[in-house]
Nucleic acid binder design. Structure first.
Lengths: 129, 129
DNA sequence: GGCCTTATTGCGCATAGTTGCAATAAGCGC
DNA sequence: GCGCTTATTGCAACTATGCGCAATAAGGCC
């Protein structure tokens, strides 16, 4: 694999981003560094980085792509359709969920891929949806 | 609300579609009936129909929008990243999953909104990922 | 049946993401 | 350091989706 300046740029933008980034945001960030950055290069670099296992992509509540640097622990995401809040699925909770899915046909869920939508406890108590 | 021919067209295309359809597919179908159909009209009609509660949208494994006619029972979707299979989450399974999410902070999951990705039992046993 | 209000449409443009292809340049071998 | 192979890039065009706005027409009112 060739270590080109534009790849450096993408990786730099990625690590400079805390948590999750949209592909579009990444393009933005890269352009801040180097205005000649082309979107397609960023997208393709992301694909490569993903193949290498350096990053993972998922989809936000609106289905848009989001990337996050591969963390030590896999983590899913929750989105509250009432308050718009987003947060990570707690460890224990994740295990319970994985177990729940596995219980039927041994389906091994990858919670990190998609944002799970619903109403958070606070909003639910406040009157829900 | 005005019952225009183009809305009829969209609804017809929707009911003619078994299960789930992509917005793009819907545009196609409408064009089959009436070649003058404009994409934006279809998208907007879908928004309206959703407000009325006639259809629901969710996101496939790739984050693309998918619509399904509001069924009697809410149902989530599973996607196997190994074999590409897709199927609905079984009733009991759904309950277990909802309970698992609720257990921590009372989060009320809406499983129907996003496709859950993972590896199905068969593929997992056959060697996983 | 004709008129008027205003919800809808259709057009043109904008954004997010993707792809084909020719031009470019990384990194290997010498 | 030089040249060669071929992975990568950049461009341009394209799909999916969404938005603003002026033109159109649905449906209520008379």
């Amino acid at each position: 694999m060739r270590w080109t300046p534009q790849r450096r740029s993408v990786v730099a933008a990625l690590s400079g981003a805390s948590g999750h980034v949209t592909a579009a945001e990444l393009v933005e960030r890269c352009r801040d560094q180097d205005p000649t950055t082309t979107p397609s290069t960023v997208y393709r670099t992301l694909d490569v980085l993903e193949e290498l296992g350096l990053v993972r992509h998922g989809h936000g509540a609106d289905g848009r792509e989001e990337f996050h640097v591969q963390p030590a622990v896999e983590h899913g995401h929750l989105y509250c359709s009432a308050c718009g809040g987003r947060w990570e699925i707690a460890e224990g909770q994740a295990q319970a969920v994985v177990a729940a899915f596995a219980s039927v046909d041994g389906f091994e869920v990858d919670l990190s891929h998609m944002t799970v939508v619903g109403v958070c406890g606070a909003c639910a108590r406040a009157g829900g949806r």
